[in-house]
Design a protein around this nucleic acid. Structure first.
Lengths: 214, 214
DNA sequence: TAGATTGTTAATCGATTAACAATC
DNA sequence: TAGATTGTTAATCGATTAACAATC
């Protein structure tokens, strides 16, 4: 892995997609791919694929192409998916519960350790054997258990306060589902899933079709 | 609304954010804002704000700024949020149910009319008074009820088949939560919510912090 | 070795920012 | 009117694509 100059975020956003397609190739038992073949598959230009990968190092071999397995592993490592992350979910409404189940079943490497809510009717119930705890105890729990990621599934009005608590307690990242842009210290990463925004941009494209596509 | 040359997708992706901040200004009773004040609030440059808005028309007034209410309405109209959209959800697992509830409670203008699944234990149950129907009947239902949007909450292995059926039945847009890139006809818009990809890019940024931010 | 395909530099394209004349 | 702020053109910056020498 090379890595000296800052890598652009548009490149990073493409990495999980590369990885998904590589996984699929693995599944099909394909062990080798050229940037040209990969281009036809994934829809980026061969040039872009080579440029993107060379931000991190020379993973290919001239005259041959890229080894699927090792490229998959390299990208996984670049993304930091060779580690395990401890997570808590704050806000155990419909969305929070869905995310709890989703990560429980599908996301190896991202483990939900605690669920938190203010609602007394939720506190004490279990979701996949994880008890919902009182929001009051969030900071203490995050500190004591070295939680890496806080997932915010509260309303937008509570989201910033939750973010403040999570940051204070020492999380390194926040996965934010509340429709608001959070203020956090520089050393905390935030990734937003703004469902409304997504739906609204879908609405735009539905009304502009015929013209062209996203 | 001007609108002749094709507007870049990066601009469209910013519109819901403008709209969110304008809503907030409305809530605070602020009726007027300059691109400079707006810039400080939303974090885009004043120049970019003016450029973005002028893709669609001259919504401001020299020497004054922008009227919050009317700008909010203009952006809503550009996004197509002055209409109602009929939706179905295919796949009523945890995520599907969460989305059903989410849209039910929060998304005026986007109305879920039908829920579909293949699981016999789900067929017949009701979520917010909407019965889960047999996936077999999807195409017929979408055709008969002029459904605009299909929401795909199935596994990735079934997603393309569902998309094919939805397109065949005549939806204008697909909101896709399955971790796969769908192939659809040109006249159908697709908006992806790739939760895995989002989590993976969070992981990347968590390991690179100190350096800078997303 | 010859052929293929990468890694990388150079050219192009598009998006953002700066500047300022138009105008409310 | 003078001051403020837009709309818009021009300059810059960054990202994508093209080209090709390096090399397996």
């Amino acid at each position: 892995m090379k890595k000296d100059t800052k890598i652009s975020n548009v490149v990073i956003k493409r990495l999980p997609r590369y990885r998904r397609y590589l996984k699929e190739l693995q599944r099909k038992g394909i062990s080798k791919i050229s940037s040209n073949e990969f281009s036809r598959l994934i829809g980026y230009t061969a040039s872009q694929i080579r440029q993107d990968l060379n931000n991190f190092g020379g993973f290919g071999q001239q005259g041959y192409g890229y080894n699927v397995d090792s490229l998959y592993n390299e990208i996984s490592a670049i993304l930091g998916l060779d580690q395990e992350y401890k997570m808590v979910i704050v806000g155990v409404g419909n969305l929070g519960q869905a995310i709890a189940n989703y990560t429980y079943y599908y996301k190896a490497g991202f483990v939900v350790h605690g669920l938190f809510d203010v609602n007394p009717r939720l506190i004490g119930i279990k979701i996949n054997d994880i008890e919902v705890m009182d929001y009051e105890n969030l900071v203490e729990y995050v500190e004591d258990n070295n939680i890496d990621i806080g997932i915010i599934c509260t309303t937008k009005d509570n989201a910033q306060e939750v973010a403040d608590k999570l940051c204070f307690a020492g999380v390194k990242g926040i996965w934010n589902f509340a429709p608001i842009d959070l203020e956090v210290p520089d050393h905390v990463a935030v990734e937003n899933v703004h469902l409304s925004d997504s739906l609204h941009s879908l609405a735009y494209h539905m009304n502009r079709n015929g013209e062209s596509r996203q």
